[in-house]
């Protein structure tokens, strides 16, 4: 699963900054049929969690109403330089994660 994460070039101590993530995933709704008429099982990334130095800072539960190749933007604050870890899992149990080092400036 390919994913891309983007944070601003400059992060200020204690100031909110935005995190953007895009994950390559079909987000199969469970409402489509294959060529032989069988239902294609639902398979969406149902949970995404952001942790900063191990502390959960954001959690999202996603459904089939999220567009394919999900794109999410949210805000967090960093009290000090550290590592932002994003992890997610889909209905098939396939998990992914990305780690982004964050350097804060005063």
């Amino acid at each position: 699963m390919v994913a891309r994460v983007r944070i601003p070039d400059v992060v200020r101590r204690g100031q909110p900054f935005d995190v953007r993530i895009a994950i390559q995933h079909v987000m199969e709704t469970g409402f489509r049929f294959d060529d032989s008429g069988r239902t294609i099982a639902r398979n969406v990334i149902h949970t995404l969690v952001a942790r900063y130095d191990g502390v959960e800072v954001y959690r999202a539960e996603l459904g089939s109403g999220i567009a394919a190749n999900p794109y999410l933007q949210f805000w967090i604050t960093a009290p000090a330089s550290g590592v932002l870890e994003l992890s997610w899992i889909d209905d098939a149990g396939v998990a992914g994660s990305e780690r982004v080092p964050v350097t804060v400036r005063d």
């Binding site: 909110p16 709704t29 109403g65 999220i66 999900p70 949210f74 805000w75």
Partner: peptide, 12 residues
Amino acid sequence: RAGRAELATRVR
């Protein structure tokens, strides 16, 4: 810790 109550996504 979010610092700002805002989110964006793309939906069906």
